[in-house]
Amino acid sequence: MTDLAANPPPAVPAPAAPVRQLGYSVRAIWPFLVIFGGFVLLALFAPLIAPNDPNSQNLLARLRPPGTTARGIFYALGTDEVGRDLLSRLIYGARVSLLVAFLSVLVSTVLGTTLGMIAGYYRGWVEVIIMRLVDIVLSIPAILLAIITVAVLGPGLQNLILVLGFTRWPRYARVAYGQTLVVMNLPFVRASRFIGARTPRLMLRHILPNIAGAVIVVATLEFGLMVLFEAGLSFLGLGVQPPTPSWGSILSVGRNYMATAWWIATFPGICLFLLALSINLIGDHLRDRLDPRSKR
């Protein structure tokens, strides 16, 4: 519940050796950039890369293990319960995963940053209303908020993006608000106010560029979370609907075939794990770089 402006001053003198607040840092970040970049490429060029149509069924080649060839088609990662090529479904799944994460982060970034800046700029009752709303939305566990909204609106790609976007904006609002309060007091902003700069100019030219770093850090960390949320909701059957391939829904099918076809649940899990891991580490790295004051 603390914001940057209201942080209590440290009572004890700063420790002699600065402790890296974030905890560990991973020395080499590039392997994770490569992994993330790889998934982005898979997503962008899925139709060119995927060896087969992700939705074409081959009922005579159901549940085949990785590396089998059936009727002249090679299934590198095996087939699922209706004989679809798992590898191709995973490649198209990267598309769904990144698309949902990217668009929902975009929705919540725009919404949250705007509201946070407005709250920090105008103060007064506008601030009270917006920040109270932030507290309320943040106090509902995100997965519950997502579940009740999906229950009302119905599942599907579009609704999923909206639900995630509209449930996550308070994170950005809080950061944007705190940073705006700080920036508003900087000499150059006050100066340009005195010489008569108008609100839009102040917000876009002076405040936004100065709070962008902190917002980007939040967005990166949220991006990883959104990937997991999409997969989680799709796993529960509340996200992307079949036959559209999503790693989460492939996993939930795989759960039913664990004893006979281990590959269906294993490979989408690995993809999800690698993507989430690389995004988390990139986010941590960015935070270290851009926001040295950050804790935890």
Partner: peptide
């Protein structure tokens, strides 16, 4: 070890 614990989606670690 901690990074793995943090990045494993629960539905996957559960299945594994």
């Amino acid at each position: 070890f901690v990074l793995i614990g943090q990045s494993m989606p629960t539905f996957w670690s559960g299945i594994l």
